[in-house]
């Protein structure tokens, strides 16, 4: 049923750190690889070696330039996959019940056997998190690696999403937002984790950590003493050297 569960026991999701993401696309490709081989139909590619290659991906990395009112422009890499919204419009619009949000952990999934490929859920999703696979005709989306996170065939340490496991910069974190002490909850609290398009009322579970302030015009006055000259020219420098050295008890450390 596409009614949303009133609450879910856990709220699993990702924290994505926009301060640290270097835009390497590692998460994109590991996601493609894992999900091609695992949950549901493979993620197909059309015209793979031709003029207009186009395939299904569940996670994609955008980049944006931000021009502040003053100062230099910043560039921010922006990975985006399903946010596993609490109020997921993609679920309620689904006519077949293929789309659903799991009661136990809040993961939003598509049951591919039931999907008629009408595309309506993708229309309803504000985030572009769903893609209809052109070969299979079913809706694909991030599964939060539901076939990894509980998978007893994987070593316990590997029971995390493929994209999180692979992220070289450590910009992706996985966990339970229902637990206020979880790493993801703490990161969200400490770093001001934010929702995307909160005005649409989807209540995304995934949170984005905003980039820390960059290029802060440091107060050179505070730093100035560090450059107070001991000498203007080399003679003075040598004199200072002599003094400074006699203060060092012959290679002290």
């Amino acid at each position: 049923m596409t009614e949303l569960p009133k609450t879910t026991a856990r709220k699993l999701g990702l924290v994505i750190d926009l301060d640290t993401c270097v835009g390497c696309h590692a998460c994109v490709v590991s996601c493609k690889g894992w999900n091609t081989e695992n949950y549901g139909a493979p993620l197909s590619d059309q015209d793979a070696y031709g003029e207009a290659p186009s395939g299904t991906f569940l996670n994609r990395v955008h980049s944006y330039e931000v021009q502040p009112a003053e100062g230099t422009a910043k560039l921010i890499h922006f990975p985006k996959s399903c946010l596993h919204c609490e109020d997921a419009p993609c679920v309620t619009v689904c006519p077949t019940g293929a789309s659903y949000k799991r009661t136990e952990d809040g993961i939003v999934l598509v049951n591919e056997q039931d999907c008629i490929g009408c595309g309506l859920c993708a229309w309803a999703c504000p985030y572009g998190a769903r893609e209809l696979d052109a070969a299979e005709g079913v809706m694909k989306k991030c599964t939060l690696c539901v076939d990894r996170i509980y998978n007893e065939n994987l070593p316990e340490i590997d029971r995390e999403p493929a994209c999180v496991r692979t992220c070289p910069a450590g910009a992706r974190h996985f966990g339970d937002f229902a637990d206020p002490d979880s790493k993801v909850s703490r990161l969200t609290a400490d770093r001001g984790g934010m929702d995307l398009m909160p005005e649409l009322g989807t209540k995304p579970v995934n949170k984005y950590l905003p980039p820390r302030p960059r290029d802060a015009a440091q107060d050179i006055d505070i730093l100035a003493p560090y450059l107070a000259p001991v000498a203007e020219e080399s003679k003075g420098f040598v004199a200072w050297l002599d003094k400074a050295l006699s203060a060092i008890p012959g290679g002290s450390n």
Binding site: F57, H62, Y64, E65, P126, L196, P210
Partner: peptide, 24 residues
Amino acid sequence: TATGLGTLGRVKAFEPPHTGTNYL
């Protein structure tokens, strides 16, 4: 609001995630 970056300044899409096209 889509990127949450609006508070930092004027946001402009720089590179798309893929140079080709896709379903979206």
